[in-house]
Amino acid sequence: MRTLYFDCFSGISGDMVIGALIDAGADPVQMEEELKKLNMDEEYNLSWGKVVKNGITSTKFDVILTSKSDQTHEHSHSHEHEHSHGHSHSHGHEQSLGHEHHHSHVPHSHHGSRTYKQIVEAINEANFNESVANMSLAIFKKIGEAEGHIHGLPLEKVHFHEVGAVDSIIDIIGAAILIDQLGIESVQSSAIPTGSGHIHIDHGIYPVPAPATLEILKGVPIASNDIRSELATPTGAAITAVLARNFGSLPPMTVESIGYGAGTKTFENHPNVLRVIIGETQ
């Protein structure tokens, strides 16, 4: 069985998943074409390229929002501005951030956030193949239910920046497209390190893991470490929580390809990358 294993020794985020899958040999150009079915391609540009994180060559994937995605950005050269929903984007160069959630400083136009319902409609109308649509819908439902639970809202009423943001939509559906493209039949994962400390989000200063992330990871083994940073984002947590059949050490497999996806932050003592291992299991 063709198996994908997420080796999350430095956590997991949506952009790290896509970077790692591209690094393992998936075709980002085909993904970019498929994503056009959402009719949102005026709102973003995608970039990917090699970076070295603490000695490991890895692929950094970025969603760069255009001025059309958020009317509050008057400059298209926004690479110095962190526009982050759930994880931060470095726009092609390395930056070290104190925390990942700091998207409360920009008032959002109606493009900047979408409701859970709008996202479901967009996926259903996009005419993806069944596998991509089902994976994407299940991941969004996981995040939507977690956010609804935290904020005391039913799923249909969930309207928030983390899921609605263009970059989260691209990360989740893009990951589903690449997993489908690679012919993955089974997903497994290591335990998920969440990090520790605090983050600043729209509602104020929150503990790490953020409440939505922790809610998403119910039933998933969490690994403890003393890194004072948010290692698992809601998007990354939901991808593994939904797709992985089991969590533990690397299963017996014949390894075919390996990929490293770079995170934005750089840590002193370990490479901030997600490793994916793809191969045949019994």
Rank of each mutant, 00 (worst) to 15 (best):
Glu185Phe: 00
Val187Phe: 12
Gly183Tyr: 02
Ile201His: 10
Glu185Tyr: 00
Ala212Thr: 01
Pro193Asp: 07
Ser189Val: 06
His198Val: 14
Ile184His: 03
Thr194Asp: 00
Gln188Val: 08
Thr213Tyr: 10
Ile205Asn: 10
Asp202Cys: 08
Ala212Lys: 12
Pro207Phe: 11
Pro207His: 15
Ile184Met: 07
Val208Pro: 04
His203Glu: 13
Ile192Cys: 09
Leu214Pro: 01
Leu214Gly: 02
Glu215Leu: 00
Leu217Gln: 04
Asp202Gly: 12
Ile192Lys: 10
His198Asp: 05
Gly183Trp: 00
Val187Leu: 11
Ile216Met: 05
His203Val: 01
Ser190Arg: 10
Pro209Glu: 01
Ser190Cys: 09
Tyr206Ala: 12
Val208Asn: 02
His200Asn: 11
Pro209Cys: 06
Ser190Ala: 10
Ile192Ala: 09
Ile184Gln: 03
Glu185Leu: 06
Thr213Val: 05
Pro193Gln: 05
Ile192Thr: 05
Glu215Asp: 09
Pro209Ala: 05
Ile192Glu: 04
Asp202Met: 10
Gly204Pro: 13
Ile216Gln: 07
Ile199Asn: 08
Ala191Thr: 06
His198Lys: 15
His203Met: 04
Val187Tyr: 10
Gly195Trp: 11
Thr194Arg: 07
Ala210Arg: 02
Ile205Asp: 12
Ser189Gln: 07
Leu214Ile: 00
His203Ser: 09
Ile216Asn: 02
Tyr206Asn: 05
Leu214Trp: 00
Ile201Thr: 14
Val187Cys: 15
Ala191Ile: 00
His203Arg: 10
Ala210Asp: 04
Pro211Gly: 09
Ser186Pro: 00
Ile184Thr: 06
Ala212Pro: 00
Ala191His: 09
Tyr206Ser: 12
Gly195Asp: 09
Gly195Asn: 10
Thr194Gly: 11
Gly195Thr: 06
Gly183Pro: 08
Glu215Lys: 09
Leu214Phe: 10
Glu185Gly: 13
Ser189Gly: 10
Pro209Asp: 01
Ala191Glu: 14
Ala191Asp: 13
Val208Phe: 02
Thr213Asn: 03
Ser196Gly: 15
Ala191Tyr: 04
Ser196Ile: 08
Ile216Thr: 03
Ser190Lys: 08
Gly197Glu: 09
Ile192Leu: 09
Pro209Val: 05
Ala191Gly: 14
Pro211Asp: 10
Leu217Pro: 03
Tyr206His: 14
Ile184Ala: 02
Gly183Gln: 06
Leu217Phe: 03
His203Leu: 01
Ser190Asn: 08
Ser189Arg: 11
Ala191Lys: 11
Ser196Leu: 10
Glu185Thr: 07
Ile199Arg: 03
His198Met: 14
Ile199Glu: 14
Ser190Ile: 08
Leu217Asp: 01
Ile184Lys: 08
Ser196Lys: 15
Ile216Trp: 02
Ile192Asp: 08
Ile216Ser: 01
Glu185Ala: 06
Ala210Ile: 01
Gly195Val: 06
Gly204Val: 07
Gly204Asn: 07
Thr194Met: 02
Ile205Tyr: 07
Ser196Met: 14
Leu214Asp: 02
Val187Pro: 12
His198Ala: 12
Glu215Pro: 00
Pro193Cys: 09
Gln188Arg: 13
Glu185Gln: 15
Ile205Lys: 14
Ile216Asp: 02
Ala212Trp: 00
Gly197Met: 09
Ser186Asn: 13
Ile205Met: 12
Gly195Phe: 13
Gly183His: 04
Ile216Ala: 05
Pro209Asn: 06
Pro209Phe: 07
Val208Cys: 04
Glu185Lys: 14
Gly197Asp: 11
Gln188Phe: 10
Val208Glu: 07
Ile201Lys: 03
